[in-house]
Amino acid sequence: MKLLRKGAEADIYLTMWDNSQAILKVRNVKKYRNPILDAKIRKQRTIKESQTISLVKSFGISTPLVYYVNLKKSSIIMQEIPGKPVHDLPNSKIIELSKEIGKIVGVMHKNGVMHGDLTTSNFIYYKNKIYVIDFGLSQNTIKSEDHAVDLRLIKEILNSAHAQIMEHSWKNFLIGYKSIVGLANYTKITNLVSVIESRGRYATVI
């Protein structure tokens, strides 16, 4: 099996499933972590990821198909999406796609799902469609505060990894997001984002 990527949480291999290429995602033992804690985290996230990946598909969001889950090994075999992570696309394309990403996040939140790890590496662009991956940190929640945590994270990523296009891309994200969740929710959640930011260390106290 070919190792495609050493992610933070899991190793990604290229494998075969039913005569076609597939992805094997293994949450390997982390030796630096206490074994009891490590086992709990790996099992919990494998279950959560396989559940949510299929759940959000029912909302009309594109995600890889799950073929097989092995809880003993904390591994998932899923459909391969051969596209590119949005993170690696040219700036102009990221700005353009931000609106669509905002819509996708809006649909998840509207249906009570928080992704939990909204980075530009977790959106894959393939054949003019955006696929969402990496649901290990997702939660089923309708709390606005949780949804705001999601928004804050993507804002933080745009502000750090994509600092040059932060303004445009964040604006587009919000346009897309608002068009799905509606003005009332949008206002409430974006206000909560400011509240979370103001809790940050040494944020300007007014």
Partner: peptide, 10 residues
């Protein structure tokens, strides 16, 4: 076991 709270990169 104690609560383990990682939210994305935070």
């Amino acid at each position: 076991l104690l609560p383990y709270s990682v939210k994305g990169n935070d």
